[in-house]
Design a protein around this nucleic acid. Structure first.
Lengths: 142, 142
DNA sequence: TTGAACTGTATAATTTATAATTACAGTTAG
DNA sequence: CTAACTGTAATTATAAATTATACAGTTCAA
């Protein structure tokens, strides 16, 4: 897996935590530990999902447009690196006369799909708000 | 994820399917679509788990030493590429004064661990024999 | 007891994937 | 008009994965 998914979560959690509610690509890049251009690129994806809004020009930047409790990690995963749990290089060769060599790839696809779906079922139950709370402990309710 | 896990499954399924019950690294490499030296390297891992036996020298090669129905995909995964579902590059920086930047990595580790454990729970229910049967349909029982 | 057919293992070379960097056009506020 | 931003594409650098090469050790059989 590449680091797009955790970086996307980081960006959303940061915006959810920010008091001003917005940040520009330089501030975000420094916090994540990456390059502003990469932040801007990732933000396109988050904007397309309707999770963040953008303001161009002077004083511009990014801000949350959805409730942190409504943004699920499974959806961030799907938007940022879907299929990332499978190896790029398939094993075997489709044209082989050996049923194992020609069939293994399809069989593994099936198992990878099922396993990934369990992985996502779990992430479906975790929101940006949950991640933020795990980091900055919420005050225990009275 | 790299392709060690599916390749390891392929090797075991191939041996389980083989009529002679054994194969050398060249035959396996051709079937998998890789290099014999890589097969030999992967075989070390499978041998250490007790799943395959080795015979060196002339006429040598590899053979199954466990029941295909007793080899679980989750164990193959653990032996071949454990941790492969996480990104290599962590987001944020541990020393930051910002709680999000310093804490996000630990939080994500937690969620990745939980999600990966669901992934493995599923693979725990699949054996080499299941994979083989999915490829070469078992005769329907009378 | 020699040689051919293997495995075991290390390491170098190559390819591919990922991330960083650069560049510049477009937008906005003042 | 200009400075401070985003949007986007292209390029370069770095890291990871895979392939390839090499050779020592093992085994069998003539």
């Amino acid at each position: 897996m590449n680091s797009e998914f955790p970086a996307a979560v980081h960006l959303l959690v940061y915006l959810a935590h920010s008091t001003s509610g917005s940040a520009n690509s330089e501030e975000l890049a420094e916090n994540v530990g990456t390059h502003p251009a990469r932040v801007r690129k990732m933000m396109r994806c988050l904007r397309e999902q309707g999770w963040v809004g953008t303001r161009e020009g002077i004083g511009g930047g990014y801000f949350l447009q959805a409730e942190p409790a409504a943004i699920r990690l499974a959806d961030i995963y799907r938007a940022s690196c879907c299929g990332g749990l499978r190896p790029k290089k398939p094993t075997g060769s489709p044209g082989s006369t050996c049923p194992v060599s020609s069939g293994i790839s399809g069989a593994m696809d099936h198992y990878f799909g099922e396993a990934e779906s369990r992985y996502l079922d779990y992430l479906d139950g975790v929101t940006v708000q949950d991640v933020l709370h795990r980091i900055v402990d919420p005050r225990p309710l009275p």
